[in-house]
């Protein structure tokens, strides 16, 4: 049974993981120092969600993928130059901060409003995807609130696998305690999936996809509406961990001695 899914992926942007991050206090609450200088990437878990969405859309004829993102337009544009080459998508851009210090509830409201603005959405075909957490706020709370606002109560978090049975039922693997997966079956859309890593590699660049996407991405960025997003919480302090260990550096020691020392340490209670 082929279902032409409507897959809506929510995903923000975060600083490229290798960048040095430092918090600063501003009149509007905490922020990252020189945040606008830092190269950004699509939030890694959202990126996994997007790749899974593209993979599923390819296998289910007639499916379509949207990416709904709350981010500063300039950063989103930079990220689209990479992501736009990888998967066919339609962008719904919402101008707003990418900061991790914003309130999940406000971001959820903005995302839900963006999704509701997509013409022709059909709940019976809707798969709402996102990352289970972000690399900025790392709360794992936003997607549930988006789902609630859209009336989706079949929700899954930490998803590593989605498969579609012949009758259209969705079989979902979620990460749970003990390094295990919980297996669930849902009769069909609408569902919400907060993805962990999944199992797919990053798709390679594809110039034709890029050309196709970019025709719609730029207009979407140009007409991005600004969302009202607050800090929500009252931040007392944001600090970098100070803990520095007094590292003992063992050099010029025979391998045998090092191995013995490690074994003694590993086996000690």
């Amino acid at each position: 049974m082929n279902i032409p899914y409507q897959i809506v992926v929510c995903g923000g942007v975060v600083p490229d993981p290798l960048q040095t991050l430092e918090p600063i206090a501003t009149a509007n609450g905490p922020a990252l120092k020189n945040e606008l200088l830092l190269p950004h990437v699509l939030d890694p878990w959202s990126a996994h969600a997007l790749y899974e969405a593209a993979h599923l859309a390819r296998r289910s004829a007639g499916s379509k993928v949207w990416l709904v993102s709350v981010a500063p337009k300039t950063k989103l544009q930079q990220v689209m130059m990479t992501i736009g080459q990888r998967v066919p998508l339609e962008l719904v851009a919402i101008e707003g901060p990418a900061s991790g210090f914003t309130d999940a509830a406000d971001v959820a409201a903005a995302l839900a409003a963006g999704i509701e603005g997509i013409a022709g959405l059909d709940q019976s075909r809707l798969l709402l995807f996102g990352g289970w957490e972000s690399a900025s706020r790392a709360a794992g709370a936003t997607m549930q609130m988006v789902g609630e606002r859209l009336g989706i109560i079949d929700q899954f978090q930490g998803v590593d696998e989605l498969s579609v049975a012949d009758d259209g039922a969705l079989r979902i693997l979620e990460r749970i305690e003990g390094g295990q997966h919980q297996v669930s079956v849902c009769s069909g859309p609408p569902v919400l999936l907060g993805w962990a890593t999944g199992n797919l590699p990053e798709p390679p660049n594809h110039p034709q996809i890029g050309m196709q996407n970019m025709r719609a991405i730029m207009p979407a960025l140009q007409k991005a509406r600004t969302a009202q997003i607050s800090g929500g919480a009252r931040f007392e302090s944001v600090t970098l961990p100070k803990q520095q260990r007094a590292t003992r550096i063992v050099k010029d020691k025979p391998v045998e001695e090092i191995a013995r020392e490690i074994v003694t340490w590993v086996t000690a209670e």
């Binding site: 544009q77 890029g210 140009q222």
Partner: peptide
């Protein structure tokens, strides 16, 4: 410069290629 160009919609810039 890239931002201005992309926003113009007249040219496409693709890094990582």
């Amino acid at each position: 410069v890239g931002e201005q160009l992309m926003m113009s919609g007249a040219v496409q810039l693709w890094p990582g290629v």
